[in-house]
Computed example of a mutant assay.
Amino acid sequence: MDAASVQRKSTDPLAALPQGPGSALELAQDLAALGAGGRDAAGRWMSRPAVMRRIALLLAEGVPARATRVVVAGDGAEALGTGLSLAAGLPFAALSGDATGLTFGEVHAGEDASLVAVHHDSLAGLRAWCDAHGLTAVHHQSVFGGSDATGALFVVDAGGSIREGST
């Protein structure tokens, strides 16, 4: 049974909660209002369930069916990995902020991994770590990136403005 086949009863108080990610533009505006694009801002958006749920759902849309595990790196990787794991239905592992060591979960050589970084510039270290541990990177994406970042949900410019990225 998959999550889409589970129906909530109309008497369930959680039935009124939004189920989808909503628009990426609206989410970008919410993130900007939180000042979420900075390096030290993970706690501002990861601690808000409505924001975290929407980001996890958007990231899960990008995880290919071939992936057998999600590997996440960056500040708050354990929180982001939890949300993404629930949304994608895959196990996850979290790496330290600098993508050099495993902080949560496990990996196994030969797994097909979807790589997710909080900030785009962490992807190179994440890929290198996965290569060194025998994982095959089948996809990569990030929550935030610069204007030249491909696969970033959101682009943060030099002034801190946040807009939709190119996933």
Rank of each mutant, 00 (worst) to 15 (best):
M1V: 09
M1Q: 11
D2K: 08
A4Y: 14
S5T: 13
S5Q: 13
Q7F: 10
Q7V: 14
S10M: 12
D12H: 14
P13W: 09
A15M: 03
A16R: 02
A16D: 02
L17I: 05
P18K: 15
Q19T: 15
G20L: 14
G22R: 01
S23Y: 13
S23N: 13
E26L: 14
L27F: 04
A28W: 06
D30C: 08
L31Q: 04
L31R: 05
A33S: 12
L34T: 03
L34P: 06
G35W: 04
G38A: 06
R39I: 09
D40H: 06
D40M: 05
A42H: 11
A42E: 12
A42Q: 09
G43P: 03
G43N: 04
W45R: 03
M46R: 08
M46W: 05
R48C: 01
R48F: 04
P49N: 05
V51K: 00
M52N: 12
M52R: 15
R53K: 12
R53I: 04
A56P: 08
L57H: 06
L58T: 00
E61S: 10
G62K: 15
G62F: 12
G62R: 15
P64D: 04
P64M: 05
A65Y: 11
A67L: 14
T68R: 08
T68Y: 06
R69V: 07
R69S: 04
V70K: 13
V70W: 13
V71S: 00
V72C: 10
V72K: 06
A73D: 07
D75G: 02
D75K: 03
D75M: 01
L80H: 00
L80E: 02
G83Q: 06
S85E: 09
L86I: 12
L86G: 10
L86E: 10
L86K: 09
A87R: 08
A87L: 11
L90P: 07
L90H: 08
A93R: 00
A94W: 02
L95C: 01
S96H: 08
S96E: 10
G97N: 07
D98M: 07
D98P: 05
D98F: 07
G101P: 01
L102V: 02
F104D: 01
G105T: 02
E106P: 02
E106V: 03
H108S: 05
A109V: 04
A109C: 03
E111F: 08
S114W: 09
S114T: 07
V116F: 05
H119R: 03
H120W: 08
H120R: 08
H120D: 15
H120E: 11
D121L: 03
S122I: 00
S122E: 01
L123A: 09
L123K: 07
A124N: 13
G125L: 07
R127Q: 04
W129N: 03
C130T: 11
C130G: 13
A132I: 10
H133G: 02
H133D: 01
L135T: 00
L135W: 02
A137V: 12
H140G: 03
H140P: 01
H140W: 04
S142V: 02
S142A: 06
S142N: 04
V143P: 00
V143G: 00
V143I: 01
F144D: 08
G145Y: 04
G146M: 08
S147K: 13
D148M: 09
A149E: 14
T150M: 14
G151S: 15
L153Q: 02
V155I: 15
V155N: 12
D157P: 06
A158G: 12
I162S: 10
I162F: 10
E164Y: 09
E164W: 10
G165M: 15
G165K: 14
T167Y: 13
